[in-house]
């Protein structure tokens, strides 16, 4: 099996709701990109647990 570690990031202590949403989308994008890449490496044509 393969594990990937994405680029870590820190969230400012005074981040407001809008900034938190940007961070949430960043985390989601990072996890989805890494998962798609690993699934491709492992031979899956379409990532198996993609959100519908």
């Amino acid at each position: 099996m393969i594990i990937d570690f994405g680029e870590p990031f820190r969230i400012a202590a005074d981040a407001d709701d809008a900034e938190m949403e940007i961070m949430r989308l960043r985390a989601e994008q990072s996890l989805n990109d890494m998962t798609d890449n690993l699934d491709r490496i492992c031979g899956y044509a379409v990532s198996m647990s993609k959100a519908k």
Partner: peptide, 9 residues
Amino acid sequence: LFVPIACSG
């Protein structure tokens, strides 16, 4: 730090 982690196999 928030660290995204993914895996497959």
